[in-house]
Simulated scan of single mutants.
Amino acid sequence: MFIVDDDLDLDLPAEYGVDDFPLILQDKRFAPDGSFDGDPLKGTFGIMGDHILVNGTYNPHLSVTTERVRFRVLNGSNARMYNLTFADKRRFHVIANDGGLLGAPVEVEEFSLTPGERAEIIVAFAPGEQVVLRTADNGVDIGQGDFDLLKLIAAKNLKPTPDVPARLASLTPKTAPAGAKVRRFRLSGHDAINGKEMDMARIDEVVPAGAIEIWEIENNVYSHNFHIHEVAFQMLEVDGSAPPAYATGYKDTVYVPAKSLVRLAVQFGGFTDPDSPYMYHCHILRHEDSGMMGQFVIVKPGTESQVNLTIPTHAGH
């Protein structure tokens, strides 16, 4: 996990290891001798572990010393979705996701993260209480099972902390202009996008620098998610409905439910290089490593037709 700081003064919990903690979630399987078990490239999704590690620790606990705590959560699993909630069903605030702070906090009882997605939450505690952060079975094929993740034990005396700010970052909506380019990406099986497996010597898409485009991710089978390098996007629709409020803001990874269509407004940067591609791919390890990836380059507007779509040599990513 990389934590990127900024100079916004919002009175958010920010003392690392005191009221500001990273939570890296990974599910694992273990052999009888304690070594990791399972093949991440077998089965529909690869390994679906029966032990959940938080920051590499099984069955952890945390002593809480402040009235509010900020958790920066990363789904570091190869396939599992986490549907995060507390055992007592307390409400808490989502304040950020993949691309940073939201415009305003969103109060929730639960929220979901697929592999590669990130979120930040602020949770309030009462003196002396104990509660468990857990993931609840939501019936999704990559999120089945109920697991306790982290036991939180509040001290008898808690240091006061400010309320969650009503406003966070100033976000400019990613609004595609009239006539914006629409690209559709069909996910089928576990090894192809638009019917093609990843080819390191092939450029699949050419994008003009600074463009805002509409990308439609069509999933014809079981669960996938979709990650785009270099960009920031905003979710527009999930099967014709608005995305959950906590998934607003700037993102780079999105859950694409089985048999669904997700629409995104994608903004590309200004750096151009017709020879060095970026990737887009499913972030489930079994799928991306089996070929569910593509490549795009960003070029000077008006030069799209001049790009060589075959790369003779590849420097790698």
Rank of each mutant, 00 (worst) to 15 (best):
L236W: 03
L261K: 14
Q234Y: 01
Y250Q: 04
I203E: 02
H229E: 15
V262H: 06
E218T: 08
Y250L: 13
P208F: 03
I214N: 06
A232I: 13
E216T: 11
Y246T: 03
Y222E: 13
Y246R: 04
A245S: 08
A247V: 09
V238F: 08
V231T: 14
V238Y: 05
Q234V: 00
I228C: 05
D252P: 02
A247F: 13
V231N: 00
Y222P: 00
A201Y: 13
A242L: 14
H227P: 04
L236P: 01
K251V: 11
D199E: 08
T248E: 14
K251L: 15
D252W: 15
F233I: 03
Y255I: 06
A201I: 07
G195T: 06
A258G: 13
E230A: 11
P257R: 07
E197R: 15
R202E: 08
A232D: 11
G210Q: 07
N194H: 02
I203G: 04
M200K: 15
M235R: 14
D204L: 01
K259I: 08
P208I: 01
E230L: 13
E237P: 05
P257L: 08
V256G: 04
N225Y: 04
L261A: 09
I203Q: 04
G195Y: 05
F226R: 03
F233G: 01
G195A: 05
D204C: 01
